[in-house]
Design a binder for these strands. Sequence first.
DNA 1: GAAACAAGCGAAAGCGCTTTCGAGAGTTTC
DNA 2: GAAACTCTCGAAAGCGCTTTCGCTTGTTTC
Lengths: 345, 345
Amino acid sequence: MSSPGSGSRRVTLADVAAFAGVSLATASKALNGRGDVRDATRERVRVAAERLGFEFNTLAQGLSAGRSGTVGMLTSDLVGRFSLPILMGAEDAFGAGQLSVFLCDARGDSIREQHHIRALLRRQIDGFIVVGNSTDPRPPLSLDAEVPVVYAYAPSTSDEDISVAVDDVAAGRRAVEHLVQMGRRRIAHIGGDSAFAAARDRAAGVTVGLEEASLPLGAGGRPHYGSWSESWGRTAARVVLELDPDVDSLVCANDQIARGAMEVVQQSGRGVPDDIAVIGFDNWEVLTADSAPPLTSLDLNLEGLGQRAAQLLVAAIEGAPSPGRHTVEPRLVVRESTGLTSHRR
Amino acid sequence: MSSPGSGSRRVTLADVAAFAGVSLATASKALNGRGDVRDATRERVRVAAERLGFEFNTLAQGLSAGRSGTVGMLTSDLVGRFSLPILMGAEDAFGAGQLSVFLCDARGDSIREQHHIRALLRRQIDGFIVVGNSTDPRPPLSLDAEVPVVYAYAPSTSDEDISVAVDDVAAGRRAVEHLVQMGRRRIAHIGGDSAFAAARDRAAGVTVGLEEASLPLGAGGRPHYGSWSESWGRTAARVVLELDPDVDSLVCANDQIARGAMEVVQQSGRGVPDDIAVIGFDNWEVLTADSAPPLTSLDLNLEGLGQRAAQLLVAAIEGAPSPGRHTVEPRLVVRESTGLTSHRR
DNA sequence: GAAACAAGCGAAAGCGCTTTCGAGAGTTTC
DNA sequence: GAAACTCTCGAAAGCGCTTTCGCTTGTTTC
C-alpha cells in the first residue's frame, strides 16, 4: 500500500538521503529546517522524502535528543469522570501532536501507581500529569528522577509543586449569584460529604455569595452535609423542605444530589423551577442535560484544567516551571431547573 | 535522591557494566536473562544495577528491537463512557506493564484521527486498538503501515480485521430471561434510536428471549424505538402505559431510558418494582446504583472487552492474529428495580 | 597429555537519527 | 591574484541497548 519499496522494511532517513543524493546529515538538517542547507537541496530532500513516503522514527529522535516527546498521565479515575476531559484539554494544548500521552490508571492503588511511574520513567517520558480523584490535596509523587510533574484536579500538598485545581469556592459563589439574579432569596445548600474539600469549598462559596447579596442561608442557616449521592439528595431535600417550607432554591453540591433533591421536591407537589430552583455542580451531561427539567449546573471546566495543566507541564519541561496552585474558572451552564418562574408553563 | 552519582545524568547500562567489571554485552545478557552468563556473573551485574539504581531505557531497547512496546488506543468517546473501562481492561491484559498505551481522542473528527494515526506510527507503536463510539460497524482504518489493529466496541466492517464487540443480542435475551424468572409475563420494550445497531440488536435479543419463554411482547407487540435519552424514556413509558396498562415490566434499551421510564411509571401511581419492573442496559453506575429504586441493568462488560481486545492485539503483534468478530458476554447486575414483588415493602 | 567440546565472555556492528566540526568551493576584498 | 570570508555539505561520533560471532578458558574423553 505504501510508496515504492512496499512490502519491505520502513523507509529510513538514509534511504531518503541516498535518493536525494546527499548525506544523512544534510537530509536530517534539510527536513528539520535546521543548519545551513541550500534551498534547492532542501527542496530536493523534501521531494525525496515525500516520494518515498518517509516518516521520522520518533524513537530514534528521542534517543538522540534525550527526550521522548511523551508525557505520562496518571489517573485514578474510577468513574471516568475527570480523566477524559482533562486528557482532551491536554491534547489540545499539546497541539500538533508534538507530545503524546500515555494514560495509566492506577485505580487508587499506590502499588500500581508506583509500578506505572517506573514503567513510564523507563520510557523516558518528559513529564507527568497526575490526576487526582478528589480535590483534596495529595502528597507529591516520590520520584527518583528529575521529571517535571503537574498535579491536576487534586493539587499537591507542597507549594513547590505545580498544581492546577478547579475553583470550587468561585463555583459556589457563582451558583448563588445566579439564583439571586433569577430572583431567588431563600437559598438552601445541600452539601456533599464534608470529609471532602470539594464539599467544604463549595459551601464556602455559597456562603460568600450569600454574604455579597446580604442574604441568609436557608433551612437552618447551615449547609446540610451528607454524601455525594442521589439518595442523600433525596434525604436532604426532605429535611430542608421540612425545616424551611418556603425555601425557593437549592444549591446542591453535585449533580447527583441535585437529581435526588429535584425528585423529592417534585414529589412534594412543588414545581421545579416554578416553586424551587435547583442547581448542581459538575455539569455531568448524562445527569443534567435531559432530566425533567434539565438541570442548571456549574461546570468546573475540566477541559480548561487539562489545557492549563498541559501548558504548565510544557513550560516546566522547557525549564520554566511555575510552582504553586493555579486554578481554572468554572462556567455556569444554565438550563431550565433555574429558569425564570414567569417563563414556566 | 537517587543512588550514587545523583545529580548527574541517568545511569546507563555501560555504568553498570563498568561497575560490575564486565562488558556491555554481558551486562545486557545478564539483566535480560539471555545468553550464556555464569550465575555468579549474572548476580554481580544484578547487584551493580541495583546499587546504581539502574533502569533500562525503553526507548533504546525499542530502537534496537524494532518494536516499541507501546500501543495506540484511538477513541472518539465524547462522553467518557467506553474508553476508560476498555483502557483498564487492556491494562490488565497487558499485564506487568510490558506494553504502555497512548490514548488519543479523535473527537469523532477523521482529520484528527488521521493526524493521531500518523503521530502514533512515527512513534513506532506496535499496534492499534480502535474504540468506536457506537456498536455500528465502522470502516477499517486506512494505514500505509503494517501494524495490527483491533477494533473494539465498534467492529470493523471487514471480516479480515480483528474486532471485539459487545453482545447486545445476548444482553437483550438475558434481560427477558431475568424478568421471566422474576415472574413477569407482560414485558414491553422501549428501544433506543433504531438507527443504531445497538437498539436493533437489543430488541432482537428481547424478541428471542420472549420466544424462548413463549411470551408475546407487550404494548403493541413491537419495540418502541426512539432515542437514547431519558426524555424518550418518559415519553415512551407514557405511551406504553396507555397502550397496555397491565404491563408488568419494561426492558429499556439503556439506563437513561430506564431512568426516564421509571420516573413516569412512578408518577402514574405504580410502584417499581411492585407493579412494574424496570431494567436498563449499560450499567452506568451513576445512573443505576443510586436511583430510587436502584436499577437492574445489563452490563455489557466493557472491561472484559478491553481485556479481550488487548489479548487479541498481543496475539496479532506476535504474529498470530485471529481475524473476525469476537464478542464478550454481558453480565446481569440485579438491583431492586426488578426485585421480587413479594419482597417489596 | 593431546584432542575435542562446552561454557562464558567481549569486540564490534548495528537500530535511526542528531549534531559537531572541518573541508571544499565559491565570493569578496585590497 | 592572494588573503580572508562565507556557504554548503559530509564524515563521524554519539544516544543506550541488543545481538552476533569468535576467542579464551576450563572440562572431558580416550
